[in-house]
C-alpha cells in the first residue's frame, strides 16, 4: 500500500510541480521578450544588434503550446511514470498485506 501510494504521489509531484516551474520559466521568458522588445529596439539603435535575434524571439512567440519544452517534458514524464506504474502492477508478485498468515 505504501509503495503504491508513494509511486502515485511521485507521479503527481512530477505532473504538477515541475510543469508549474516550467510554465513559470517560459512565461518569464515572455516577459523578458516584452522587455526585450523595447530593449531590442533601444539596443538595435545603440549597439546595432542583428536581425537574427528579432527573428528568434518572434519564432518563440509563435510556437504552439504542444511544441513547447515544458509541455513535451510533462507528457514524457507522465508517459514514463505511467509505464512504470503499468510495469509495476503487471510484474509484481502477489504479496498480500493486511491480515496474513506466513509460513
Amino acid at each position: 500500500m505504501n509503495r503504491i501510494a508513494s509511486l502515485l504521489i511521485v507521479v503527481l509531484l512530477v505532473t504538477f510541480v515541475f510543469p508549474v516551474y516550467g510554465d513559470e520559466g517560459d512565461q518569464a521568458g515572455g516577459i523578458n521578450l516584452k522587455v526585450g522588445k523595447s530593449f531590442y529596439f533601444e539596443g538595435d539603435i545603440q549597439e546595432q544588434i542583428g536581425d537574427d535575434k528579432e527573428e528568434s524571439m518572434a519564432e518563440i512567440m509563435r510556437t504552439p503550446f504542444y511544441r513547447t519544452t515544458w509541455f513535451i517534458t510533462t507528457v514524457s514524464v507522465l508517459a514514463i511514470a505511467g509505464a512504470a506504474v503499468g510495469i509495476y502492477f503487471a510484474t509484481r508478485t502477489e504479496e498480500p498485506e493486511g491480515r496474513v498468515i506466513e509460513w
Binding site: N2, S6, I9, G98, V100, I101, E102, W103
Partner: peptide, 27 residues
C-alpha cells in the same frame, strides 16, 4: 508551488502513519 510541495509532503507523511491494522501470524 511551495504550498503544493508541503501538501504532498503531508500526504506522504500521512500515508506512512495511516497504514495500521496489519496482522501477521507467523507459523
Amino acid at each position: 508551488s511551495l504550498l503544493f510541495i508541503i501538501a504532498v509532503a503531508g500526504l506522504l507523511f500521512s500515508c506512512g502513519t495511516e497504514n495500521t491494522g496489519d496482522f501477521k501470524i507467523r507459523l
